[in-house]
Structures are given as C-alpha cells and as structure tokens.
Amino acid sequence: MKTTQELQQIATQVRRDILRMTTNAKSGHPGGSMGTTDWFVAMNFNIMDFEPKNFTMSGEGEDMLFVSQGHITPVIYSTMARRGYFPVDELKTFRKFGTRLQGHPSTAHNLPGIRMASGSLGQGLSVGIGAALGKKMTGDKHLVYTMHGDGELEEGQIWEAAMFAGAKKVDNLIATVDYNNQQIDATVDEVMSLGDLKAKFEAFMWKVVVIDNGNDMQQVLDGMAKAKALTGQGSPVCVLLRTKMGYGVDFMQDTNKYHGAVLSADDLPKALAQLPETLGDF
C-alpha cells in the first residue's frame, strides 16, 4: 500500500511516460490515458489484490481488470510496468514492430497482465461478467473490475451486458466509466447525450458510486473503497468517474484534440515541464 502522496508521484511519472511513449511512437491515445491515470495508479498500487510476478491467465486467487476501451494502452502499459509486470525500459517499444506492447491490448504477444484483447469497443463488460461468473463457480472471492469510456457506452453490447449483470445479480463486479464527456468527433453531449447516467445504471439494477473528481487521488481511493464495500450485496456496482481528458498538462485539458493525437517533438518538452520527473524516465 502506498500513501496518497506516493501515488500522486507515481501518477506524475505515468503521465510523463504516456507523453513520451506516444510521441516516441508518433501515434497512440494520450488524452484518455492522462485522464484516467490517477484511477489506474490507485487500482494497481492500492485497490486491487494481485501480484504481477504470480500472473496467471486464470486470475485465480486475485482481482482481475479488463480495460474495455483498449485504446488507452499508454496508461495501461505504463502502470503495468511501474507495478512490476515488465521492465520499465520496454515502454520505449510501444507500438514498434515486434513489440509486446501492441497498439491495443493483445494476448497474442505473451505480455503478462493482459488476459483479453480489447480495442473494438463495448465488449469488456461482457468479458468481465464471464470472469465474475467463473469466479463464483470456482468459489474465488476476489473481484472483477472493468473500465469503460463514456463514449463507449454508445455501443449496444454494453447495455446487453448491463441488463444481464443486474438481472443475474453479478455482485462481484465493479465497472468504472471514465466520464470525461469527450469522444473523437465532439463532446459526448453533442454526439449522443447520456442523459442521467446514474439513473440509467440504477434502472438496470446496479448500485452506483459517483466520484466527482477522478483526478483527485484521495477521492479516487475513497470512491473505489466505497464501491468495494457495496459488492456482495446482490447487485453489480458502477463507478462514474468524472475526469478531464488530457489532465496534467494545461494545454491538453478540456479538449478532445488529444484523444488520438500525440504531441510533436517540439511540444513535448513544454508538456513535460509541467510534470516533473519523480521515479525516473524509461
């Protein structure tokens, strides 16, 4: 377990990693990665129960995480490396030919920590439900977590899965929505308003926790602890995590510009100047 301050320091380093990885690869998705960095750091270091060196595909005896919006690989890989799944130095291979760090998560390249491919949106909640049912069948008391983009909720399969999990009382499952109101073409409100998202999940028989500021480490820790406390009570749990896409660099925030666009080599130092190195760059 890390202190909140230690987690904040890791998060700053992860944001540096994200920017350096994507500029190095000349492609990738920094925006959503930076918005969810605090959540990923909290999950990897304090919330979830798992041990990287004991990784198994079955996840027996540990918590499992499925990231449904697979495009945020920069934050996934950086937090995995910082947590000890693989050497930090390997981050420089992100998206390069022959890498284990594929553009979207893959099980085809033997990267420990990844159990399912994602990238084609809307599928991770179903997978998480399957794993949660598997844990119930095998008597494993550990939890299954999923992560989703808010734009991703436009996929119909999400609502098939939401209906199933509520109706079948899959109560060892916590699904978090990165609620940043940004997607590729415009804001989510403009593309496809989600309306009262909390009420929607509640109508599907879920318990809902709202984290008002998903870029505040203490709020993330408290909110996820609250979500964990709601498991095992006959309902799946949804966390609505309010974040800012591109959080951590002033000129990358509050815009969808950096959803799938990377900083130029000229802009990178300006951004990194706002994120002082804490653990050492890769």
Binding site: S126, T138, Q157, A161
Partner: peptide
C-alpha cells in the same frame, strides 16, 4: 448450475463465454 441463460443478446453471450474460459471453464 452450469447453464447460463443469456436472453436475446448474442454479443454479450460471446463475451461472457470468453470470460468464463479464462477461469478454466469450457463454454
């Protein structure tokens, strides 16, 4: 106890089957 009724939602059923397979099940 080993049969899962998924309702009329085939896409979700495929994902659930994949998730179950992780836990050693043969769906």
């Amino acid at each position: 106890e080993r049969f899962i009724q998924c309702g009329i939602a085939e896409a979700n059923m495929v994902g659930i089957a994949a998730g179950l397979s992780l836990c050693g099940k043969v769906p």
